[in-house]
């Protein structure tokens, strides 16, 4: 198991997780791209040591092709999703002028009304 691969997975995961905690959707998208790379690299690591291309009939030991097939599928899916998120960010930009993730409006309303109740209860005592 290669240390450099493991270190890359660790680094990508750290930066990716940091980015997806941001409020701005463009940072979240970058974060998901990095996390996706980390996940694909861990699939590769899971496939065992590097070896020759997996073509039937050769003498040399071949690399395990299954995780590579899984990784390929995962890459294609993450391509599509990144595009969708970008479209979402563009739409938010068109509607509000920025791409920040907003709070749940209904929750804010309930929180505000419960604060009001607290205040009026305090005033009456």
């Amino acid at each position: 198991m290669s240390i450099s691969l493991l270190a890359s997975i660790g680094g990508l995961t750290t930066v990716g997780l940091y980015l997806i905690t941001a409020r701005s959707l463009s940072r979240i998208i970058l974060g998901f791209s990095l996390l996706g790379h980390a996940a694909v690299l861990s699939l590769l690591v899971a496939g065992g040591p590097p070896a020759a291309a997996p073509i039937a009939g050769g003498d040399a030991p071949i690399a395990n092709p299954l995780p590579q097939a899984l990784a390929l599928t995962a890459i294609v899916i993450s391509f599509g999703l990144t595009l969708f998120l970008l479209a979402l960010a563009a739409r938010q930009q068109a509607l509000t002028g920025d791409d920040l993730v907003e709070d749940d409006l209904e929750d804010q309303r309930i929180a505000a009304s419960s604060n009001e109740e607290d205040r009026s209860a305090a005033a009456s005592t």
Binding site: G36, A39, S42, L43, V45, A46, L66
Partner: peptide, 15 residues
């Protein structure tokens, strides 16, 4: 998407 990415990591662990 976060859950899906974690799923992918999980698949790597299982494999």
């Amino acid at each position: 998407l976060l859950a899906s990415t974690l799923f992918l990591f999980g698949l790597a662990f299982v494999y």
